[in-house]
Write a protein that binds this DNA or RNA. Structure first.
Length: 563
RNA sequence: UGUCCCAUGGUGUAAUGGUAACACAGCGGUUUUUGGUACCGUCGUUCAAGGUUCGAAUCCUUGUGGGACAACCA
């Protein structure tokens, strides 16, 4: 049944791809079957742009009761590695998608592709060209002028056949010749001007080793692989639009029945303040502008995972930006909104003081320890509560005290009262200052015993509420404050300037914080809201001896904005 | 001086010939033991010109602007 008809209530708004598939299903195309594939080349790590493709490929299959294959597009041994295969699989699973037993490789089809190539030669539709890359390129013409035919274009079939064999035996050197499809050198579409089908590459392949010396090009592998797997919808990004006629040409000459896969293109993901190209990301890693592919500032899935982004936040973000044919640039603040939205519901609240200032309660007994019961998450009633030790000496945030506060400052200052969240209302009676630096070193307060959190008399209202940590119980932690990697909205958009010039010198600040003792058992990837500060997760570097937290994203802060 | 694709508030997306709307961002407010959350309000939109039609964001024509294509990469 149609997805549209399926919903009696409000008609669901489908993106143009879902509408297209819906229509095809209704018309009984391919017997109503929907089968997609996600086809990464294992030559690097996945980034959030790939996540957009993954969500579409797996999402369409899910929506229409079909299947989605994982297929590694491994037709170029020079760049591909097994560890990339493993990383890619891990990232897709992390996002929450599963290809079940359908893990395929373009290299699975080398035999069949070879046979198809031989067939095309025999049909006079392909030939061996012995010219150099430069000659072929020169004859190809330009987008505005037609190409010229190769002198080898009409060589005898037997000759091409024999040479094709030699391309794969190692008898011929790399670059000695290529196999080309005989299409149309005058086509206005450059991809139709006798495209190269096979080239020689003697580098061992990560899966097939040295068995092959001649490898199919993307254009000669992709559509056919789709056909072999019974793919109905081959979804790819906009820049492949001009490849589609060639995709169809090969499939048309290959197919033996009515079934054919259909390629449809959608817009790539672009984000403000971010670079997404694999080459640029590689450069950031190799030139040590970041610590690696999984640096929390990278838009890679491994980096975002380490930064504290949840799969749901990424999927929700992608859902909101949609799929169109318009080359859009999405605001990174929508991504930040998505992760705050998700973590607000899921992240346990904890007290962590990022820039500590000592606060002493002069009327609180020296050795007394009260265990304050504090709820873990006001947004989740099932999250329960925990006990946090409260004592005479506490750390508060340095920003939460001002000697001469302005009118709109609701926090602590001389003679002012605030609530220590989950504790007491305290009043500032004085403070100590370092004469040389002029820096406040201690703040002295008295507490009001009647105002203990939860007590009947505790409802007295004060302007501000501060988070705190007991000095004697505090744990030390390294906190990595991450900010956007680039200062410019479009780092690649300046002709006269290299994108590296826009790197934010303050994209990482490492500080030492005091955190509440319950965090002693926190494990890598656990996420928290540091009350009043932001969302943080435990870094993969973190150990029991040395806790390390990453700032995923700060809380919205209308006070900071006002300043 | 080519072919193909695209154009809706600041950003992104919807409206499938019938009242231009939603989210984010911005601004203002209510609630709040997080200056968070939630909630309310507010700002602001069909690239241009013609045509078809009772009626056009939607269809047609022309123009303007943006993008893709000249790897033995994918």
């Amino acid at each position: 049944m149609s997805v549209k008809e399926n919903t009696n209530e409000a008609k669901e708004n489908l993106n143009f791809i879902a509408s297209m598939i819906d229509e095809a299903v209704n018309e009984g195309v391919n017997n109503g079957r929907v089968h997609t594939r996600f086809p990464p080349e294992p030559n690097g790590h996945l980034h959030i742009g790939h996540a957009k493709a993954i969500c579409l490929d797996f999402g369409m299959a899910e929506k229409f009761g079909g299947k989605c294959n994982l297929r590694f597009d491994d037709t170029n041994p020079t760049k591909e590695r097994t560890d990339f295969v493993d990383g890619i699989k891990k990232d897709i699973h992390w996002l929450g998608y599963d290809w079940e037993e359908r893990e395929f490789y373009a290299s699975d089809y080398f035999e069949r592709l070879w046979a198809f190539a031989v067939d095309l030669i025999k049909r006079g539709l392909a030939y061996i060209d012995e010219q150099s890359a430069e000659e072929i390129s020169a004859q190809k013409g330009t987008p505005t002028s037609p190409g010229k035919e190769s002198p080898f274009r009409n060589r005898p079939v037997a000759e091409s056949l024999a040479m094709f064999e030699k391309m794969n035996t190692g008898e011929l050197d790399e670059g000695a010749c290529v196999l080309r499809a005989k299409v149309d050198m005058t086509s206005p579409n450059m991809h139709m001007r006798d495209p190269i089908m096979y080239r020689i590459n003697k580098m061992p392949h990560h899966r097939t080793g040295t068995k092959w010396k001649a490898y199919p090009m993307y254009d000669f592998a992709h559509g056919q692989s789709d056909y072999f797997e019974g793919i109905t919808n081959s979804l790819c990004t906009l820049e492949f639009e001009v490849h589609r006629p060639l995709y169809d040409w090969f499939v048309e000459h290959l197919r033996e029945d009515d079934y054919r896969p259909r390629q449809t293109e959608f817009n790539r993901l672009n984000l403000t303040y971010t670079v997404m190209s694999k080459r640029k990301l590689m450069q950031l890693v190799e030139e040590n502008h970041v610590t690696g592919w999984d640096d929390p500032r990278m838009p890679t899935l491994s980096g975002m995972r380490r930064r504290g982004y949840t799969p749901d936040s990424i999927k929700n973000f992608i859902n909101r930006i949609g799929y169109t044919k318009f080359e859009a640039t999405n605001d990174v603040s929508l991504l930040e909104f998505a992760v705050r939205e998700d973590l607000n519901k899921k992240a346990p609240r904890v007290n962590a003081v990022i820039n500590p200032l000592k606060l002493i309660l002069t009327n609180y007994p020296e050795d007394k320890v009260e265990m304050m019961c504090i709820e873990n998450n006001p947004e989740d009633e099932n999250a329960g509560s925990r006990e946090v030790p409260f004592t005479r000496e506490l750390y508060i945030e340095r920003d939460d005290f001002m000697e001469e506060p302005p009118k709109k400052f609701f926090r602590l200052g001389p003679e002012r009262e605030v609530r220590l969240k989950g504790g007491y209302i305290v009043k500032c009676e004085g403070y100590k200052k370092d004469e040389d630096s002029g820096e406040v070193t201690e703040v002295y307060c008295t507490y009001d015993p009647e105002t203990k959190s939860g007590m009947p008399q505790s409802n007295r209202r004060v302007k501000g509420t501060l988070h705190w940590v007991s000095v004697g119980h505090a744990l030390d932690a390294e906190v990595r404050l991450y900010d956007r990697l680039f200062l410019d909205e479009n780092p690649l958009g300046h002709k006269d300037k290299d994108f590296l010039e826009f790197i934010n010198p303050e994209s990482l600040k490492i500080i030492h914080a005091k955190v509440e003792p319950s965090l002693a058992t926190a494990k890598p990837l656990d996420y928290f809201q540091f009350q009043r500060i932001g969302y943080f997760n435990v870094d993969s570097d973190s150990t029991d001896e040395k806790l390390v937290f990453n700032r995923t994203v700060g809380l919205r802060d209308s006070w900071a904005k006002r300043k």
